[in-house]
Design a protein around this nucleic acid. Sequence first.
DNA 1: AGAATTAGACCGACCGGTCTATTCTGCTTT
DNA 2: AAAGCAGAATAGACCGGTCGGTCTAATTCT
Lengths: 191, 191
Amino acid sequence: MAADTRQHLLKEGMAMLLRHGYHDLGIAALLEATKTPKGSFYHHFQSKEDFGLQAIDAYMAEVHAGLDHCLGDESMPPLKRVRHFFELTEEKYRTEGYLGCLLGGLGQELSGVSEVFRRKVEECFSAIERRVAACLREAIHRGELAPGTDPDGMAQLLINCWEGAALRTRLRQNPAPLREMLDFYFRSAAP
Amino acid sequence: MAADTRQHLLKEGMAMLLRHGYHDLGIAALLEATKTPKGSFYHHFQSKEDFGLQAIDAYMAEVHAGLDHCLGDESMPPLKRVRHFFELTEEKYRTEGYLGCLLGGLGQELSGVSEVFRRKVEECFSAIERRVAACLREAIHRGELAPGTDPDGMAQLLINCWEGAALRTRLRQNPAPLREMLDFYFRSAAP
DNA sequence: AGAATTAGACCGACCGGTCTATTCTGCTTT
DNA sequence: AAAGCAGAATAGACCGGTCGGTCTAATTCT
């Protein structure tokens, strides 16, 4: 039951952080939503900040699972795997009501005010990037991308533009910005 | 002296909102920073929300001034004008300590929780976009871009990717993401 | 039994916002 | 030009509510 409560808090916490952001999410509201007493919360997490950081970890576990699933799919050419990952992510955003990406949300809200969160979020983006870059490297090797292409730069570019499009998707409540961004990127990268 | 206090609050408010975001910015902190008594604040603004919305207006006045300056510069070809605007914006970010864009920050933090802010920020992006699109249209007319190019789509793409790169610049405290994004965009758009 | 977990009353600090009093400021009237 | 006055602006004490966090006691596991 112990780990259960923790997981339950993290799961609901991710969803509430996505909608409300960090500072607008009150502990009391989270406890109300999960029917958890305060004692439990502070038994499992040492502070709100600790909770936020662990929620990011939980989010990243999902992201890495998606990457495992897509980038490891050898039945597709590497470039297609990358695109597939983002298309699945778009689908995930849709089911959540177009609230965008937790990393982008918390990164924007907290990076000016908390060095801890700033570094954490940056490290998460960088981890995703490394995996995408590896797949891009394979694409170059297979001739899907021009030999001179910089896989690290192109991976970072993709992640960054994706985040911008995700914000816009959130503002417009519409997936078009994500789709148009992917179209442009893959059309330009692999003509 | 009246409009003076208001402007002073808005100017300092923009800077503090950029760093702290909305919910982490307390009225008391703003009043302390500007040596303003509370009575003045609530004389000039009806609420914190009203203040936030007016701070966005003040920010947009600066953006439009930058657009006037760059996009109206007939000594440059249209495509160069657009790029010049973003390069100046990057320079502005640098002087502020790489805190990124206020629209991106408030958009991410508030769009899940306030329909008013969501619409406001979206309308601001859309306004910038219209002006960029007009300049792109001129670029097409002058043969700088392929005749079939969609100026509105390309303008939105540029704004969106810019915002993503701005977030990353904030996270890394480094302008490289912005530069690499512009390079990719203009290289791909006008080969 | 003893450790892990749940339970929730309680705390001081701070939040956005209100209220009344005072001080400026510019216009009207003479 | 001086006096008087009304509205704008400043000043800050004050308010109820909510914040993150603590503490002790009860309960549930192994």
